[in-house]
Amino acid sequence: MKKLVLAAVAALAFGTAVAAAPLKIGVAAEPYPPFTSPDASGNWVGWEVDFLGAICKQAALDCVITPTAWDGIIPALTSGQIDIIMSSMSITAERAKTIDFSDKYYNTPAMVMVAKDSTITPDAAGLTGKIVGVQVSTTHEAYTQKYFAPVAQEVKTYQTQDEANQDLAAGRLDAVMADSIALQAFLDSDAGKACCKSAGNVKSDPAILGAGVGFGVRKGDPVLAKLNDAIKAVRADGTYAAITAKYFPFDIYGE
């Protein structure tokens, strides 16, 4: 208790948080451009990384990015290997049973991507009898299972979006469903240009696709309030818009 008081006093006196250990920010260990991806020198780059920098500066938090496997990212949070999830994770009721979410920090529609010469449409009729790939335990998988699984030949699940994209390029899939921005980034790359195109966005279903993307924290972790304040602050002072302009020609916050 004494320590806490001391820390609070020190924080007040010096105007900075006296955090003993830096906060570990869990990022899915796989490239998810343009939000999070490792560059050749092993640093994490992308919109979310820049955004995190702004948030941690705003909230005076000491943050380190900690790559974690996507499929174990929630257990990693609850078991204490990481402190915050920042991995383009959609806020869903199902996940909110296990972890707490911050306010959303971006929200973009979901898209279906297909091979260049394909005539598939992004609905159940178009995907009947096709092989559809999605990243495992994402909102897009839930959507695919509900709308497309009954008619598709097979729904294949992947640990990473990158693997699903690769398998579409390799002709092993007929279509991939995922976040429109992540897919657009792939379509803009050389590999994406060579193989694939957008079939359009899917019909929205907020109950499944969630209410945007937020930070995930352990239930009851007081850091949540700091994050929410910081999101509001960077939205208000123009930092958010400046970072977004570096990556996208439009606002990704959603309405």
Partner: peptide, 19 residues
């Protein structure tokens, strides 16, 4: 992407968040 017993339990873990 082969759904062997290991992948199946992985999927159950991801669906239910039971570790």
């Amino acid at each position: 992407t082969i759904m062997d017993i290991y992948a199946v339990t992985g999927r159950i873990r991801q669906d239910t968040f039971i570790i």
